[in-house]
Design a protein around this nucleic acid. Structure first.
Lengths: 246, 246
DNA sequence: AACAAAAATGAAGTCAGTTCATAAAGTGCT
DNA sequence: AGCACTTTATGAACTGACTTCATTTTTGTT
């Protein structure tokens, strides 16, 4: 049960002395909100979100701590909104998957795309991996929706390949997606921990290759296939033989 | 610049009234430490480590908040030590990989083993994924050492298979390890977020199957291989035929 | 100009982790 | 047993961060 400030008779005001307040720098609500978001992003980019204080953001935005709470529920809400804009920008940089042909190339491209976002914006990547995804209501967050696009593309490539008979159908597309994303994330963590850099092309290539090969439909040849082949050979041979005799 | 308590003249003592202190319950240092660890683990298991307060742990252990700091550097240090013991127990439950034959079976077992730890101890799994692994000096932590065993086994299985010619050698063993661990982690996250349960056997089987096939050097002859062989024979035959006619 | 509504302020509140002077308990020596 | 000394436990106070809200300032309207 939290104590409520409302009914107390001016608990803060009574102690106030005559310190003159600065005039409020008024701006439109949208501008203010954008200012704070921009300031937050700048501070986060500089020092990492974990070391970022509300006070830092407020100073940078030219406002006072309390003002931030007029525009954002709390610190986390602000952080999430920052990441939302930031991540949105990254998604716009996407190149079109449609123009790429071949299942393996598509897989490679999907891996490559995510890895290149990680490389471009490690702080954002870290924030998403550490804060956003573990969140219990991640599935209802705007990020889940944004990520759906990625996920959907992977699943589509996989389903197409299964439908065309290129891929086996005894492994679920979801499994393939988990492998693709999981492997990328594993690599991302190592990168974010600073365990040396990684070659985007090499990693993307390896992932795509392994998955592609693993999923490739390989109907084993049956005995009758071989018998048919032998029969055909004998047929050809005897035809030649006849020709030789004539 | 932090203010220092030392030189101030008894800043806390002066205000103390005559409240009598409880007699100190003295125990050996090792016991005390173990008590606190056990209490911490119990509380964490109950409410998740994120909601666990030092005060909760202290109450449970029958000591006072400050006492904890005689045995542990800080909250994080305590948490890490708890996880260390906890994880160690899980590792002891390992079954022997040696008794399992066949590369694919070994891969399946490795996946299965990790997944079953996750299933048994979701709170521990969450703690390790969220707190321990992201840590910048994870590589120097006891956990990294403990995990080395897992990692080492995966790499060994892979290297053996490459050496024997069973696996191709154009994909690095590290990549395979990343895929295995990454996929497991991805699945783990979904599980920890409560997005429905998962079937350990099914997941382990899928992972092993996909990786095994993807790495396999000797692909079995397919129907199309046989067809290609027949086509080649016909080509040779017709060439011969042309020669005969001339 | 007067009034009302909206925005900004910043001192104070809150909450958790952490510190440290002090009290209590144990230990060893005479 | 008595005394000095060391170790352990205590918990009030400190700290540093997020958050609240009565008050002040600005803006918009009549």
């Amino acid at each position: 049960m939290k104590s409520v400030h409302k009914v107390l008779e001016n608990p803060r005001g009574v102690l106030k002395n005559s310190t003159s307040r600065k005039p409020a720098q008024r701006r439109s609500a949208d501008d203010r909100s954008a200012d704070i978001l921009a300031a937050a992003r700048a501070v986060i980019a500089e020092q990492g979100y974990e070391k970022t204080l509300i006070a830092d953001i407020a100073r940078r935005a030219g406002v006072v701590d309390g003002t931030i709470y007029r525009y954002f529920e709390n610190k986390r809400d602000l952080m999430v909104k920052v990441a939302e804009v930031w991540f949105g920008e990254q998604l716009l940089m996407d190149s079109h998957l449609d123009s790429i042909h071949g299942t393996q190339n598509k897989l490679r491209h999907l891996a490559w795309r995510t890895l290149s976002i990680v490389r471009r914006e490690p702080v954002l990547a870290r924030f998403m991996l550490m804060e956003l995804r573990p969140d219990p209501n991640y599935r209802n967050s705007p990020f889940f929706e944004m990520n759906r696009k990625f996920t959907h593309e992977v699943l589509q490539v996989c389903r197409d390949a299964i439908a065309s008979g290129e891929f086996v159908n005894d492994i679920s597309p979801n499994m393939l997606r988990d492998m693709l994303h999981g492997c990328i994330e594993h690599r991302t963590w190592a990168f974010l921990r600073g365990e040396g850099d990684f070659d985007i092309d090499e990693v993307a290539d390896g992932i795509a290759k392994l998955i592609y090969r693993g999923m490739l439909a390989q109907t084993p040849a049956t005995r009758s296939d071989v018998e048919a082949a032998v029969a055909r050979i004998e047929e050809v041979a005897s035809k030649l033989e006849r020709k030789l005799q004539s």
